[in-house]
Write a protein that binds this DNA or RNA. Structure first.
Length: 442
RNA sequence: GUGAGAGUAGCUCAACCGGCUAGAGCACCAGACUGUGGAUCUGGGGGUUGGGGGUUCGAGUCCCCUCUCUCACCCCA
């Protein structure tokens, strides 16, 4: 009876993760977890689905429009989370008494946004956040830089910069220039500097923010100050240091720069960049963006900032915090482009050849022995020809093949074939594990 | 959501101006080389040319709709 086949396909903006993508992704996330934990961040997660009222109106009209929202079977008005910050705010309002402050957590999970997909932008993607809430201390802000640094180093990146700015500096400047009520438009324009350049920003400042060219020029001149963090701060101090907010921002940034240097971050990692504003009016203090020297075009791979009050919509307890989010997809794309991903996708380095059809138990046993020693071992599932099994091992990227035919089994030995070095050793059954270990570590 | 470009085998591409049964390389599967991988040889499966409709004697090719991808706006990971 003929049956109509269903066309296999995924939704627009959603995608599969085949092994060659999922493997590096899992490894990346494992490394991120390791770094987060080393700083004392605790893991947590929240439901994918929340009451719509929890998620609505938290990120402005734009995010409301992007919300996947529907009625569940019980008629409840629900929506998929579009970031991890809002669910965290709800969580904190509900549970923070149990943990007290300061509280550090990391949170890795998928989020959903019904926006128009582009390269590297999907409707479902993973966020990888870390935050410290319940403290206004600049120490927490400074630590964020260390976390970002360790994250990227652990992932194998060496050439990158953490661009830092402070909202107080920007706000103070705008106050000084009498542009407070245009803050959002000005910062939005400024934030595009890397993309549209000075002329573009100037244009936008005039048309979108309604500035006169003199004001626009002033802002641009400031944004374009180049130099070491110390030099930029000095310049700022001289020109706008009399403004209270600017002065406070400068003090924070100065401490951040001094501490990161004194505590071991190499020179050049931290850059002061007056152009980064981080669109959302959500951030109120330090803001961060991280750029790879070799791939500036892909944008920031780790961004975040400080906010005054995380959960004001759900609780009267004031919960200030600071944190950032790792751009998992961008980093994977970057690692692919910079050849930082392994060429082999074998999760087990050893293939145990299934040679003699009625000796399966022996092969299973030896594979188990290898695994107990921490060495991944795969037993070929069919007693096919040796050449085919070796071809399989080669194609799949197994480093070693363990071969036991009639001959070896009667002598109590194994052939250990190194597919990469194209060499082969005969080893006694008792020495197998140590031999394999030695080859793999060397 | 708005605007622009693109969709031919799993991948990269071919098919003059609309004209024979839509091809090639790689990949995949089977077999050979009869206990040792990347090679070679032989054979094979795969396509309703993204889908639907229209024009035409005839459409992969022209027109309309739709889906998907890419780019820009917006926003951001």
């Amino acid at each position: 009876m003929a049956q109509t086949l269903i066309e296999p396909r995924t939704l627009r903006g959603f995608r599969d993760y085949p092994p060659e993508l999922q493997l590096p992704r899992e490894e990346l996330l494992a490394k991120a977890r390791q770094v987060y934990r080393s700083y004392g961040y605790l893991p947590m997660d929240t439901p994918a689905l929340e009451y719509a009222e929890i998620l609505l109106g938290k990120g402005g009209e734009e995010t409301d429009k992007q919300l996947y929202r529907f009625r569940d079977h019980g008629g409840r008005d629900v929506a998929l989370r579009f970031d991890l910050t809002v669910p965290f705010a709800r969580f904190a309002a509900e549970h923070i008494q149990r943990y007290g402050t300061p509280f550090r957590r990391y949170h890795i999970g998928p989020v959903w946004r019904g926006e128009n997909p582009q390269r590297g932008r999907y409707r479902e993607f993973v966020q990888c956040d870390f935050d410290t809430i319940g403290t206004t201390s600049n120490a927490a802000d400074i630590e964020v830089v260390f976390v970002i640094y360790d994250l990227l180093r652990t992932l194998g990146f060496e050439r990158f910069q953490v661009h830092v700015n402070h909202r107080w500096v920007l706000n103070g400047l705008l106050e000084e220039l009498g542009l407070v009520e245009r803050t959002v438009a000005v910062l939005r324009a400024l934030d595009k500097y890397g993309k549209i350049g000075r002329e573009g920003v100037e244009e936008e400042l005039r048309t979108q923010a309604g500035l006169e060219s003199g004001q626009a020029g002033k802002i641009l001149d400031l944004a374009e100050i180049r130099g070491s963090p110390a030099e930029i701060l000095e310049h700022l101090e001289k020109t706008f240091g009399h403004q209270v907010k600017v002065a406070r921002g400068i003090a924070c940034l100065r401490e951040l720069y001094a501490v990161t240097r004194a505590a071991g971050l190499p020179e050049g990692v931290v850059q002061l960049d007056l152009r980064i504003a981080r669109g959302l009016d959500y951030y109120t203090g330090t803001v961060y963006e991280t750029f790879l020297d070799d791939l500036p075009g892909i944008g920031s791979v780790c961004s975040g900032g400080r906010y005054d009050n995380l959960a004001s919509l759900y609780t009267k307890q004031v919960l200030p915090g600071v944190g950032a989010s790792l751009g998992v997809d961008r980093l994977l794309a970057a690692m692919q482009e910079l050849n930082l991903l392994p060429a082999s996708y074998a999760t087990a380095p050893v293939l145990v050849v299934f040679f003699v059809a009625d000796k399966l138990a022996l092969y299973m046993e030896v594979a188990g022995r290898l695994r107990r020693a921490g060495i991944g071992a795969e037993v070929y599932p069919e007693a096919k020809k040796l050449r085919e099994q070796l071809a399989y091992a080669n194609k799949r990227g197994h480093r070693l093949a363990v071969i036991g035919g009639e001959d070896e089994l009667t002598r109590g030995v194994w052939q250990v074939k190194d597919l990469r070095a194209q060499s082969q050793h005969t080893v006694a059954d008792a020495d197998l594990v140590t031999t394999v270990q030695r080859i793999l570590s060397g």
